[in-house]
Simulated assay, not measured.
Amino acid sequence: MNGLPLTDTPQAIADPVSTLMALAGDDMPRVEALLSERMASPVELIPELAAWLVKAGGKRIRPLITIASARMLGYEGEGHLALAGAVELIHTATLLHDDVVDESELRRGKASANHIWGNPQSVLVGDFLFAQAFMLMVDSGSLDALHVLSRAAAIIAEGEVRQLAMVGDVAVSRQSYMEVIDAKTAALFAAAAQVSPILAGRPKAEEDALHTYGRELGLAFQLVDDALDYGGLAALLGKNTGDDFREGKITLPVTLALEAASADEQAFWARTLGAKNQTDGDLDEAIAILKRHGALDETLAQARARAANAQSALGVFPRNEWTDALSALAEFVVDRAY
């Protein structure tokens, strides 16, 4: 596999998500139909809120990974459609719950559901989507795949609880933070890739390889988001730049800067993130501190290494258009930061 050349200038690269969408042209419309079917309900608020989420966009990266992995392995059944739908419903449900916990007002550049309809409504619709996800898992006909996705859902919840406990805790180590994002973000990427070889009845080595691919891709994805929050555009993230800072979240760039912080910088982080006592100009100062210690560059370097690990994991499979597209996806996850 090729390496991941990152530069300080924007790169004109093809969007591998579009490539994957084209390759999965027969499958993804059927997944979308499944999602519409599962988001339907005689309770008016549920389809109304669900439609808002669909209109808000999203690249469907996680279900695409499930579809691409299955097709890469030559799977010819239809169980992968139900699993891909389940993966997306789990993701959507967690987004609804996350926005409530974070008190977010934006989701993918639009007003968040909880901002429009309220927190109780968002939580309950999220619960409905979780239930629909589990019904789709059962429909896939694979008990082992059901186990993998069920376990991922539990791990995601554990990760979110751990992150909530870490808000404002400037003593959090980089290891603790990596464990959190391994749970709250990477677990679903890993499961999305892992269920396909299970469904296709492939050897354990291939299952492990795709689990590694998904996990490393998910870690790279989250680390790039961490860096973008302190210097990216809101349009890229679908949220306000600086949201993590305003919410008192300890992310990898902050843990790296804290490791090298002066006494004054430690006091700054304790005030702004620990006590959430923030004033105008504090976000700019936070970014300046992160850049001074190379924390953003180091975060992106770690994301690049994780993406390279994801590419390497694909090396056990014969090269074809699917492996090429999945490898390009890993590179794209990091390149979107530039």
Score class of each variant (00 low, 15 high):
Asn277Tyr: 00
Ser262Glu: 10
Gly281Trp: 07
Leu290Ser: 02
Leu283Val: 02
Ile289Trp: 01
Arg271Pro: 11
Ala267Gln: 14
Ala275Cys: 09
Gly281Ile: 12
Asn277Trp: 06
Leu258Lys: 05
Thr272Tyr: 03
Gly274Asn: 07
Asp280Arg: 12
Ala288Asn: 03
His293Pro: 08
Ser262Asn: 11
Arg271Gln: 13
Gln278Glu: 10
Lys291Pro: 01
Asn277Lys: 14
Glu259Lys: 14
Leu283Asp: 00
Ala261Ser: 12
Gly294Asn: 05
Glu259Cys: 11
Ala261Tyr: 01
Ala263Asn: 10
Glu259Gly: 15
Gln266Asp: 11
Gln266Ala: 09
Asp264Asn: 13
Arg292Gly: 05
Ala261Trp: 00
Ser262Gln: 09
Ala267Tyr: 08
Ala275Leu: 13
Ala288Asp: 09
Asp284Thr: 12
Asp264Ser: 15
Phe268Gln: 09
Trp269Tyr: 12
Gln266Leu: 13
Asp264Leu: 13
Gly294Thr: 04
Gly281Leu: 06
Ala288Val: 00
Gly294Tyr: 03
Asp280Phe: 06
Ala270Lys: 09
Ala270Ile: 02
Leu258Asn: 06
Thr279Gly: 13
Ala270Cys: 05
Leu258Thr: 11
Glu265His: 04
Gly274Pro: 10
Asp282Arg: 07
Ala261Gln: 03
Leu283Glu: 03
Arg271Leu: 11
Glu259Gln: 15
Leu283Asn: 01
Asp284Lys: 11
Asn277Pro: 01
Asp264Glu: 15
Glu265Gln: 10
Thr272Ser: 07
Lys291Gly: 05
His293Thr: 03
Gln266His: 15
Leu290Trp: 00
Arg292Phe: 00
Gly294Pro: 03
Ala270Val: 03
Phe268Trp: 02
Leu258Ile: 13
Ala261Lys: 04
Asp282Glu: 09
Leu290Gly: 02
Thr272Ala: 04
Lys291Ala: 12
Ala275Thr: 07
Gly274Ser: 12
Ala288Cys: 01
Asp280Gly: 10
Ile287Ser: 01
Gln278Lys: 07
Ala267Pro: 10
Ile287Glu: 05
Ile289Tyr: 00
Lys276Pro: 11
Gly281Pro: 08
Glu285Val: 08
Gln278Arg: 15
Asp282Ser: 05
Ala288Lys: 10
Asp284Ala: 15
Ala263Thr: 14
Arg292Val: 05
Lys276Tyr: 09
